[in-house]
């Protein structure tokens, strides 16, 4: 699909709408019973973080994400069909059905992995930053994580190393106000998270995550600094529109709060701005939304029709394929008891 305008905001709207619609379809995949499990964490409400930062990255840059990372990966060019197939646990998916929503990765796009351990992917960007400098490339590595990860010690270790070694690294904290069911003011006495980064010697900034243009502008500056060896930390304030995962009905917060939070909608805001500036109108936006809906509808069918992994792939890729795979329990039984009977 081609946009009829060169507006940067229109391009951002397009990507954010694709993320929003993809996430809605992930929810449908679950309702249809075709997702592999219910460990599905939607990034609805957080699209501006993914797009604002992702659109400033370039080929060769790498990144890690967290359990709520679909949006970031899409913003970096993921094929939504292969993502949906992976979320359904199919062989056609990005990780042959072995990773799923929380362990999606693609080395070709620089995605060093989503992570189901809160904060688990953060130190990888320190290593990737060391490698980039070792190769004298100007690539950067970006760690995306939620506000929940600010409770993990490994974040501060990694921030310290990045600052100490002047690494081409950016830390992006998507502050959706909740770590599972715990609101940030129940998790920290000092919610100005970017100030922590400054105290570590990093460039620090905090932006309104309902405004993709602001996110993109600030992220652009931080990324440009990171490329020249000044690592940074960006906090994107937003609101998690829905529960922690698909089974969570958010009993820990009330409807008034949710209604208020959902007003901070980066997709709606971008749409209004495009109209008010005359860059697009309701008609052209509706048409764009319809095309995106059709694209994302197709991902569900693609995932549903995709092939299951072969059972005998279960022992593949524990180790490098040049070495023997682990022996199965059944093979060992046959060998050991077979030997005993012969003897």
């Amino acid at each position: 699909m081609r946009l009829q305008t060169n507006s940067r905001l229109a391009a951002h709207y397009h990507l954010m709408r694709r993320i929003r619609t993809f996430e809605e379809r992930v929810g449908e995949l679950f309702v249809r019973g075709q997702s592999a499990g219910s460990m599905l964490h939607l990034s609805i409400g957080e699209e501006a973080a993914a797009v604002g930062v992702g659109s400033n990255m370039r080929d060769g840059d790498t990144f890690t994400t967290h359990h709520r990372g679909h949006g970031v990966f899409l913003a970096r060019g993921a094929d939504p069909r292969l993502m949906m197939a992976e979320i359904a646990g199919k062989e056609t998916g990005y990780c042959s059905g072995k990773g799923g929503s929380m362990h999606i990765a693609d080395m070709k796009l620089g995605h060093l992995g989503a992570n189901a351990i809160v904060g688990g992917g953060i130190p990888s960007v320190v290593g990737a930053g060391l490698a980039a400098r070792h190769r004298k490339s100007d690539n950067i590595s970006v760690a995306f994580f939620g506000d929940g990860a600010t409770g993990q010690g490994i974040l501060y270790e990694s921030m310290n190393m990045a600052a100490l070694w002047h690494l081409p690294v950016l830390f992006v904290c998507i502050n959706n106000q909740y770590g599972m069911g715990t609101r940030i003011d129940n998790a920290t006495a000092a919610p100005d998270l970017h100030k922590r980064a400054v105290s570590f010697g990093l460039e620090g900034a905090q932006v309104d995550g309902s405004d993709v243009e602001t996110v993109a502008e600030v992220a652009g500056d931080l990324i440009s600094d990171a490329r020249s060896g000044k690592p940074g930390f960006l906090v994107v304030d937003c609101y998690r529109f829905y529960g922690h995962a698909r089974m969570d009905k958010s009993p820990y917060r009330d409807e008034t709060e949710e209604a208020q939070g959902r007003l901070r909608d980066p997709v709606a805001k971008a749409r209004q701005t495009l109209i008010s500036r005359g860059e697009m109108n309701d008609e052209s936006l509706d048409e764009l939304d319809r095309q995106i809906a059709a694209e994302m509808d197709a991902t569900i069918d693609f995932a549903a029709d995709a092939r299951e992994p072969q059972l005998d792939s279960i022992f593949d890729d524990v180790y490098d394929p040049s070495t023997p795979p682990p022996e199965s329990v059944r093979d060992r039984l046959a060998r050991v008891l077979g030997r005993a009977r012969q003897a």
């Binding site: 688990g120 130190p123 320190v126 060391l130 490698a131 070792h134 490994i154 270790e157 990694s158 190393m161």
Partner: peptide
């Protein structure tokens, strides 16, 4: 010092940085 890297006392991130470096083509 670029190839023999002294670190702070941060064992989790020492191993984590080695993971990221290995995924990025180094042999840490």
């Amino acid at each position: 010092a670029e190839r023999v890297i002294d670190t702070p006392i941060s064992e989790p991130s020492i191993v984590g940085a080695a993971v990221g470096a290995a995924m990025s083509g180094l042999r840490p």
